[in-house]
């Protein structure tokens, strides 16, 4: 093997190791810099007559920047990330029907699941579909 080939092998090996280290670090940095969100566990108690209307805490209501509905709810979902599973925020368009009953708001919108984790607070603003760090995944109520 010529000296040139040896040098290329060494450079290639060193670059691969560096890129592997960078991959590990970037994964850590990515998760460390995600917006942290706290959720409210919404448990559906609706009947078939009013299944598209439900009460949610005021802090779960976010303004809709697109004016396609009165407001947005964000629920936390899980998906495959670059190297591991990650949580992300998914928006739900809702219209506000009634406000201010014991800190809750009645909204109408798509049917929610029986258990939904609605975002109620966050550290950094996020967009629909953006990955987030869910700080209270194990909290039931």
């Amino acid at each position: 093997m010529t000296l040139k080939k040896k040098a290329v092998l060494w450079i290639g090996g060193i670059l691969l190791v560096l890129l592997a280290v960078c991959s590990f670090l970037s994964n850590r940095i990515y998760f460390a810099l995600l917006p942290q969100v706290e959720t409210y566990r919404f448990i559906s108690t609706v009947t078939p007559e009013d299944e598209l209307q439900y009460w949610v805490p005021e802090e779960c209501i976010f303004p809709n920047p697109n004016d396609t509905s009165d407001a947005l709810l964000y629920r936390v979902r899980e998906r495959r990330g670059p190297f591991e599973m990650e949580y992300y925020a998914q928006s739900i368009e809702v219209n506000v029907l009634e406000e201010g009953r014991q800190g809750k708001v009645q909204v109408s919108g798509p049917t929610l699941g029986h258990h939904e984790n609605l975002i109620r607070s966050f550290t950094v603003p996020f967009a629909d579909g953006e990955a987030v760090e869910w700080v209270n995944p194990g909290e039931l109520f």
């Binding site: 890129l19 960078c22 991959s23 670090l25 970037s26 940095i29 990515y30 670059p82």
Partner: peptide, 13 residues
């Protein structure tokens, strides 16, 4: 590419 987001290096691998 190298540190802030792992998405690009994932594609490289």
């Amino acid at each position: 590419v190298l540190l802030r987001r792992p998405h690009y290096l994932k594609k490289f691998w």
